[in-house]
Design a protein around this nucleic acid. Structure first.
Length: 510
DNA sequence: GCCGTTTTCGGCCCGACTGTTTTCAGTCG
């Protein structure tokens, strides 16, 4: 069975190869776009195809891409990609991840020297051959050599929780500088995405160049990549890229909106604006070349005829349509959590200190007078063995679970938790549509674990809620500090469109 | 390759930065 990720990967690889071949950039974009649609979809494409769903109903997928996806799903292979692989050496694709090398320059290098590997590229950069090409100066060569060396490190993303402290530190550092009025971290960090690639920081200040000078002196800066009049980029010790951008106060809202993204959300907003005869960019909303909004995000949304959309929802997953139909969710908040239903028995006192009304204690029958305690039994669904006296049975679905095993477990458990390891990209390959439907029918809840590397996909939370499954957001804490993890679960639940009414531990439980 | 209530061709988000030029192409986000 082909997963959505695998389909997306094939489409995205095709885009890379087409790009190096020098195909129409918009065609390349269409493939990238389709890859994104499949990757982010809450629907299982494998299933959609088998059910005969018309893929061209999805915006961005037309006749050709629909046929391509069908081929991938039914045969597990993509003939167009196979053909392209024969034409374009893999080494050229690898070169794409080198900073400063895009399709045009790679094509230029290939046509001049017919080199097909990174080792050869390095050789030609070092022996001066590369510099003979027009447009290739000393600086670019240096950059390429550095890129070849660093290539292995490329593509690391950081968990949101891993950059949280440094992001807040940096924000405070910048706020200390005289004349700085506003500092806001935009990008996927603001959207609370489970992992982020870099930090985008916006700053409103009297004298940006001075702030930029101060910024690049931040103690954890390892390398200064660029420093311009409105934008500077650095790399920190841990290789995290940080962009700082100067913004004027009357454009702050437009800039915040633009740099918060997501890209897909922004494109939709722009399209909507164009339909209404307006133009949106990072400086404002314009009508007849006159600026009509820009100081605040609320203003920007209002100008294009929309309500304010929470950053966590800006993924082009129906939020714009929902706003137009007045159906945007009222997202759950951390303060609404009344209890943590999965903690270690050693943390009862700490949980009481947090003000929880009740708690769930893992694998223990302990009871106390000062707080309501639910006894929670955790078992792998492969070996469910219900025991007396426990209030809740949580079934753990691990990476090699099958649909049959999960469906069998649903008859016995109160909660299901789906294993996931974000960094290593491990998760069960099962039919969530089917499973959530059964869970809803049997009143089995979804346990959303808040450990930063084990968060269930936001798209799955959304799907579960749409199917009528209630969720429970738990820390799964073993130590005191981990009780605070719950905010990461809240972040993810908000990205999954969860409202207070969908979350059982915002309710009074007895 | 996709898309369409100024539709089936001709657009497709668009601006900043760098490095290489001598007015701009390529890359990036």
């Amino acid at each position: 069975m082909v997963t959505n990720s695998q389909i997306a990967q094939m489409l995205s690889q095709t885009a890379d190869l087409l790009e190096i071949k020098g195909e129409n950039p918009f065609k390349v974009r269409a493939y990238r776009n389709a890859a994104r649609i499949v990757e982010n979809s809450s629907k299982d494409f494998n299933k959609l195809v088998k059910e005969g769903f018309d893929l061209t109903r999805l915006s961005g997928i037309g006749k050709d891409l629909s046929a391509n996806i069908k081929e991938i799903v039914t045969t597990g292979k993509f003939s167009k990609l196979e053909e392209l692989k024969k034409e374009v050496p893999q080494g050229l694709v690898d070169m794409l991840s080198i900073e400063g090398l895009g399709p045009k320059r790679i094509k230029q290098i290939y046509e001049a020297f017919h080199i097909t590997s990174l080792d050869e590229l390095k050789k030609y950069a070092e022996n001066g051959e590369l510099e003979k090409l027009s447009g290739f100066g000393a600086k670019l060569i240096e950059k390429i050599l550095k890129g070849v060396k660093q290539l292995k490190k490329a593509g690391i993303r950081f968990l949101w929780a891993e950059v949280e402290k440094i992001a807040e530190d940096l924000k405070n550092y910048l706020l200390k500088f005289p004349g700085v009025e506003i500092v806001e971290i935009a990008g996927s960090y603001r959207r609370k995405k489970e992992s982020v690639g870099d930090l985008d920081i916006l700053v409103v200040a009297k004298d940006y160049p001075k702030v930029s000078e101060y910024f690049i002196k931040y103690p954890k800066v390892k390398e200064i990549h660029s420093a311009g009049l409105t934008r500077s980029t650095v790399f920190l010790e841990n290789d995290l890229q940080v962009d700082l951008r100067a913004v004027s106060k009357d454009s702050y809202g437009a800039a915040l909106h633009y740099f918060t993204g997501s890209k897909a959300h922004n494109i939709e907003i722009r399209k909507l604006a164009i339909e209404k005869g307006m133009k949106v960019n990072e400086y404002g909303v314009y009508k007849d070349n006159k600026k009509i909004a820009g100081a605040s995000e609320e203003e920007v949304y209002k100008a294009v005829g929309l309500c304010f959309i929470e950053p966590e929802l800006r993924e082009n997953r129906g939020e714009i349509q929902a706003c137009l139909e007045n159906k945007l969710p009222n997202l759950v908040k951390l303060e609404e959590i009344k209890g943590d239903l999965n903690i270690s028995s050693e943390l009862i006192d700490e949980a009481i200190k947090k003000g929880y009304k009740y708690i769930g204690v893992r694998n223990s029958l302990i009871k106390r007078d000062d707080i309501k305690i639910f006894s929670v039994l955790e078992q792998n669904i492969k070996a469910i063995n219900p025991q007396k006296n426990y209030d809740f049975l949580v079934g753990i679905v691990d990476k090699d679970a099958s649909n049959e095993m999960v469906l069998e477990a649903i008859k016995k458990v109160d909660f299901l938790r789906f294993f996931r390891d974000i960094k290593n990209n491990i998760e069960p390959q099962i039919d969530y549509d089917l499973i959530f439907k059964e869970m809803a029918k049997n009143n089995v809840k979804l346990e959303v674990i808040s450990r930063p590397n084990n968060l269930i996909r936001d798209t799955l939370i959304k799907k579960a809620i749409e199917t009528g499954v209630k969720i429970s957001i738990v820390s799964n804490a073993n130590k005191k500090e981990e009780l605070g993890f719950i905010k990461y679960g809240i972040n993810q639940a908000r990205r999954g469109w969860a409202e207070s009414k969908d979350v059982i531990n915002t309710q009074n439980l007895t």
